[in-house]
Simulated scan of single mutants.
Amino acid sequence: MRFLYGLNPLAKFLAPAPAMVLLVFVRDVATPLAFLALAYVLVLVGVRFTARTAGILVGAIPGAVALIGIGFSLWTDAALVDGTAVVWRFGAWTMYSGAFAIGFSTALRLAAILSLALIAGLSTTGPDLVRAMVQQLRVPYRIGYTALAAFRFVPRFGHELEVIRQAHRVRGAHGGRGPFAAAARWAGYIVPLLAGAIRHAERVALAMDARAFGAHPDRTERHLVPWRARDAVFVVLFWAASAAIFWTFFPWGAA
């Protein structure tokens, strides 16, 4: 059932890419709602349902739609929508239904683009994406795996920062409250964090040299990420569904 994990990462990026680009230019509400529903169905069926997934789908995206929609409604120029129905009046300030339509169409458009990106984001790992780019797109492995090693520095920095903070806490260094104490604490983290980063970079460089990284134009992959027939079928079906949605609502005629 969780079929998205078995697809090639490039297929999961390629399938929603045209719809994500075209959604930038739509101005109605129905089209982004349709893509939002399509993305939700694919994520709920194809991705393992975890607390993080539930928080994104149930909390983060609807909350962002509400906040962005109300914000853009308040910022919409009333002169552009003064021919629509009045929702409420507050003194000299009037809220029109056209402002709500503009605000929430923009919010739903952003939410639909984000939801389509989650199809690949929630079911793809960094190493598999790099392997697919190297194997299918012929990206030089020197670039792909070097970028992957750089990205993996980020969680390493987080771990080392937590270790440094615990060590400072045990020693009672930079105690106290207030902005000056916080600035002193963060200044005390910089030097050991940089030293740890340099040590980690040296170890990574030595490990890559020991494996003759970059010595040959290509390398043997232990884990293959092939492009299968199901990947092509997924891309074609998604493109067909996207074309059907755009054909049905034809949002460019409603601008």
Results as ranks from 00 to 15, higher is better:
residue 214 G to V: 10
residue 249 F to R: 05
residue 190 I to M: 13
residue 154 V to K: 04
residue 187 A to C: 09
residue 221 E to T: 11
residue 225 V to N: 00
residue 167 A to V: 02
residue 136 Q to M: 12
residue 207 A to D: 02
residue 193 L to N: 08
residue 182 A to E: 12
residue 160 E to V: 09
residue 181 A to D: 13
residue 151 F to H: 05
residue 219 R to D: 15
residue 163 V to R: 12
residue 155 P to H: 02
residue 207 A to R: 09
residue 245 I to A: 03
residue 177 R to V: 07
residue 244 A to S: 06
residue 244 A to F: 09
residue 182 A to W: 03
residue 143 I to L: 13
residue 237 L to W: 13
residue 202 E to L: 13
residue 140 P to F: 08
residue 141 Y to M: 08
residue 149 A to F: 04
residue 239 W to E: 01
residue 143 I to T: 13
residue 228 R to L: 12
residue 170 V to P: 01
residue 189 Y to F: 14
residue 147 A to D: 06
residue 166 Q to G: 01
residue 148 L to K: 05
residue 211 R to D: 00
residue 251 P to M: 02
residue 152 R to Y: 02
residue 213 F to Q: 10
residue 191 V to M: 05
residue 139 V to C: 00
residue 204 V to F: 10
residue 245 I to P: 08
residue 185 R to W: 14
residue 203 R to S: 09
residue 147 A to F: 04
residue 134 V to C: 02
residue 138 R to D: 12
residue 174 H to M: 05
residue 250 F to A: 06
residue 231 D to R: 04
residue 154 V to T: 09
residue 203 R to H: 14
residue 160 E to P: 07
residue 234 F to Y: 05
residue 202 E to A: 12
residue 159 H to E: 01
residue 180 F to Y: 14
residue 203 R to A: 09
residue 233 V to K: 13
residue 186 W to R: 08
residue 233 V to L: 13
residue 210 A to K: 01
residue 220 T to L: 09
residue 173 A to N: 08
residue 232 A to M: 13
residue 204 V to E: 04
residue 224 L to V: 08
residue 165 R to G: 01
residue 210 A to S: 15
residue 246 F to R: 06
residue 174 H to N: 03
residue 183 A to Q: 01
residue 212 A to T: 04
residue 212 A to H: 06
residue 225 V to D: 06
residue 213 F to E: 00
residue 154 V to H: 13
residue 238 F to D: 03
residue 248 T to H: 15
residue 183 A to G: 06
residue 134 V to P: 00
residue 225 V to F: 07
residue 135 Q to T: 06
residue 177 R to F: 11
residue 173 A to Q: 07
residue 198 I to F: 14
residue 234 F to R: 00
residue 226 P to E: 07
residue 165 R to V: 06
residue 169 R to D: 10
residue 176 G to C: 04
